[in-house]
Design a protein around this nucleic acid. Sequence first.
DNA 1: TTGAAAGCGCTAACAA
DNA 2: TTGTTAGCGCTTTCAA
Lengths: 336, 336
Amino acid sequence: MKMKSVTSRDVAQLAGVSQSAVSRSFSPNASVSAKTRKRVLEAARQLGYRPNTIARSLITRSSKTIAVVIYSLENPFYSSVLERASKFFQARGYHLQLFVAPLGKAFDEVIDDILRSQVEGVLMLAISITRAQAGEIAAVGVPVVIINRTVDYEGISQVSCDNYQGGYWAGQLLAASGHQRIAFLGGLIGSSTNEQRQAGFLSALAERGMTCHGVDVGNYRYEDARFATRRMFSARQIPDAIFAANDLMAIAAMETLRHELGLKVPQDVSIVGFDDIPMAAWPSHSLTTLQQPIELMIVKATELLLNQINQTESRPDHIKLPVTPMLRNSARSASG
Amino acid sequence: MKMKSVTSRDVAQLAGVSQSAVSRSFSPNASVSAKTRKRVLEAARQLGYRPNTIARSLITRSSKTIAVVIYSLENPFYSSVLERASKFFQARGYHLQLFVAPLGKAFDEVIDDILRSQVEGVLMLAISITRAQAGEIAAVGVPVVIINRTVDYEGISQVSCDNYQGGYWAGQLLAASGHQRIAFLGGLIGSSTNEQRQAGFLSALAERGMTCHGVDVGNYRYEDARFATRRMFSARQIPDAIFAANDLMAIAAMETLRHELGLKVPQDVSIVGFDDIPMAAWPSHSLTTLQQPIELMIVKATELLLNQINQTESRPDHIKLPVTPMLRNSARSASG
DNA sequence: TTGAAAGCGCTAACAA
DNA sequence: TTGTTAGCGCTTTCAA
């Protein structure tokens, strides 16, 4: 659908000025007389002229575009992050280019794609990347901030919450309230968040001389977590508490226990989640969980990115933010 | 963060060929000898060269970018739509530029912004636009498809489900099962989906000689719907059924009734929603609802957009897809 | 098949 | 403050 497309030249002609006068009239602080600018803007209006961002980007070498890479939007936590990041960047005059990361090596092509599109920064949400991939991006000099994943590569900024501390708190809560068989419902295997949450959790148990009753994997997804729950509760010795590595899985476990296995939460089984998605606060679930400081994470991540883009204090950084326990009713606090 | 940035000229020099040979080597079907291309690609690899998409766009006048405009991601239905649309376009070599539409007249600026960025198409998700705004976009000649909103402007394609039919089905179900005081929990006032769902609903009631017991507004949002529910149930005569214009509000109503007002669903109050978001199928909610054919909507919308972009059969079109009733347990089917 | 040359629409020196 | 000029990095004629 190509149209004639009005150019600054057309406007210049109509306004009876030079083409650069038109350009200047559309630059916030360029030296143009008010009179010229007025004439130009009027001519532009008449012709329906709009500066071509692409041509501008080519010459200024700044696309004012940030790539946001996300794995999936199934988890409302990341919809929320995406929405806020989007508003944040828009307010600062940046465009967002959305990439849904495919699995496997197709991801390399996405990286290539991103790099070709001349974005000024990359924001990755819960995307695990390899050192090689990190290096490839860094070589081009595009600032990257990863939210909720740790990558073993300096030169890439990271923002996450204190996953270890969160896991530790969950373990401590469940152990202290007399649970005997505490299980872990894990997220994506090998993801840093999952490992850190699990490590904190295990260490809290260990401090009380306890070990984890069992581990299964739900890949941070609802359906997978339901299967995992069924497996866990088909054993002879069933857990009396579950720490799930995110809320979506915690709720999946809760639903399965209550509506499929006839168990009561928290009377028979306590459940603790992670994230504090909106559904965790829905009364039906009333999930005890660890709240991630989503707003603060966005602010930090975007600041980091923008600072690197604008060279002000451009060192990459690793930021770890505190989590907030949300005590609701899915885990009993005192018990026999 | 500007880098030296390797250009095709650098590659040409290293490979000992002309700059245009480099360009050709990166075009799928250009006439280059295998030998030349190999030499070029090798030189490119050595230098870490990647074709600059912006420069390419400028000359080919095709940005391979689609703007997606969304109002909010609070409703998982639209996260889901966004995720699928994103995958769909990525698979076809398009980039997605995400715009979260602000309210009020700031939206005009977003439109302007979109138009300046030379996108090849615009996909709007549940965005209400005025005739004036539609005209502005159409004047530039950028194809637009709106999902889930009707706009009174030919030249803009629309894809939605049969909202009227869905509302009608809900009204019929509730009326036929003996409910006496059926209320409507509305979405965004003035939105076409809301009006159509309500109209279908009312007409089903009217056919049975019934009228709507009451109407309140939840703006398609969870919290607003909770307030609306409290208002509805503080009246002397409380409803014995609610049709909510989307699932998020239906669940909000259900939560409020069960956990705040001590009413049973569906025994005391039946609830029907619209959308069939994942949470509707969660056993706790088990929400009877109308499923929108989300996959099909995306396919149709993206096809429409791509066809218009590529001039093949380029007429704008209005597509209305059928909804599927999902009978779960939030509405009783027979009653006294 | 290849290279030279002409721009895409704009910004940014540089003079005037 | 203005116009002229030279490109940004690429694709695409046009000849060779």
